[in-house]
Design a protein around this nucleic acid. Structure first.
Lengths: 225, 225
DNA sequence: GCGAGTGGTCACACTCTCGTAAGGATTGGC
DNA sequence: GCCAATCCTTACGAGAGTGTGACCACTCGC
């Protein structure tokens, strides 16, 4: 499915994580410290890196920065519980997600899939998504409705693309925060507001949504034509 | 808050754990060995299982594996101190977390809450359920009758899905409160009212129910086509 | 710096849902 | 046919969930 690099100095953690990711259909490489991680990435680019923050030698933040210099591979950070500062710094340095220790390997595997899904969609060569008279072109970052172009902000565009690409399915605000925003935390009202703004531009009658539909008590769903 | 199944052969341990979890607002079932645990889960699926590794008869690992075959209920393992191997195997078999004995019951309660929080973020989208011209799609949160979509509220939807997924069987109001509402107490007339509302939307002639049938003095039953 | 555009947060109003209660209708036993 | 138990029906208010508008922080180009 994807090539994942797991970086942790604890052999036990590594084994568990690796076996889980393998079971999930991924190819996995391992590294026990920062230098090994950098070397591994030079030798063979992974599609995603799971990176412990506490490492002997080069620590996780440093590894993260160095990786970011030469690639924008998605990175999931493993941080100690409650290390709020680490988390913030990690995200700022370019981590795509973080998981606090002690974590469940099942949870980590889910996060890995989620991040890969999200990143896979932001590749420039992403394919055009359409629904009736609506056309979304990720490559050109444009969307047209019945031929007339829509003026969308980046977030609105991402949200629209995600929903149109995954129609009929109900997405909770929380899931949308994960899938579109790439957050595993945050205020859900953010989603509400963006949905409203998007409706204003996409729906014929924003007061009575026909395509971006509310599922009461659950979330939102894109109703295809 | 949640339905927790505690599996341990030591009565003392069980009592302490149970009283702590109850104090934390959870409903708790108990099992003294592996067979009882499996039976308990068959009869009534819990939201989380606390599972001792050392059990008479079926041991914890075996129970874990069997549970995993039919469900992805979160599992917290109780292991002896330093049994690194056990922990590894446990995690690999699908445990979500582990606590080493001797443990403080308070810590265990915290772990339980933590795992429930994490898992709660996941959207467990069940599989499609059908009965004749009726199709229930949990992922899309839609139900269609002969092709035309039904407009159902969350409760109505949950109730319908449960009944269609468990046809022919008679369900008491009490059982439905447990299974669909997740309550272990409450006013049974709640069920009555929701059954009526559901009939209004699902039955051809709500006055003469043909599919969601009343079993007098017992409860309700879904009569499949 | 300055202004325009974007994005996240908040408060408030509104809508929808759900549980409850109360009275009427049915059922089954006698 | 009568009575008690059970079930159906209806209406309503509390509370949760959602929509809306406004505000402020931030970024980026000029």
């Amino acid at each position: 499915m994807a090539e994942v690099l797991v970086v942790d100095d604890d052999l036990t953690v590594r084994e568990v994580v690796v076996s889980y990711l393998r079971a999930g259909g991924h190819d996995v490489q391992e590294a026990g410290d920062g230098e090994a991680a950098i070397r591994a990435m030079r030798a063979k680019r992974a599609d995603l890196v799971v990176l412990d923050l506490m490492l002997p030698g080069l620590d996780g933040l440093e590894v993260c920065r160095q990786l970011r210099e030469s690639s924008d591979v998605p990175i999931i950070m493993l941080t100690a519980l409650g290390a709020e500062t680490d988390r913030l710094v990690g995200l700022r340095l370019g981590a795509d997600d973080y998981v606090t220790k002690p974590f469940s390997p099942r949870e980590l595997a889910l996060r890995v899939d989620s991040v890969l899904r999200r990143v896979g969609q932001r590749t420039p060569k992403g394919s055009t998504v359409t629904d009736g008279d609506l056309v979304v072109e990720p490559g050109e970052h444009t969307a047209t409705l019945a031929g007339t172009p829509l003026v969308l902000t980046v977030r609105e565009f991402d949200l629209l693309r995600f929903l149109v690409a995954n129609p009929r399915e109900v997405w909770s605000r929380e899931a949308l925060l994960r899938e579109v925003w790439g957050w595993s935390f945050g205020d859900q009202s953010t989603v509400t507001v963006h949905v409203r703004r998007l409706r204003e531009k996409v729906e014929a009658d924003p007061r009575r949504p026909a395509r971006l539909v509310t599922v009461w008590g659950v979330g939102y769903r894109w109703e295809p034509r």
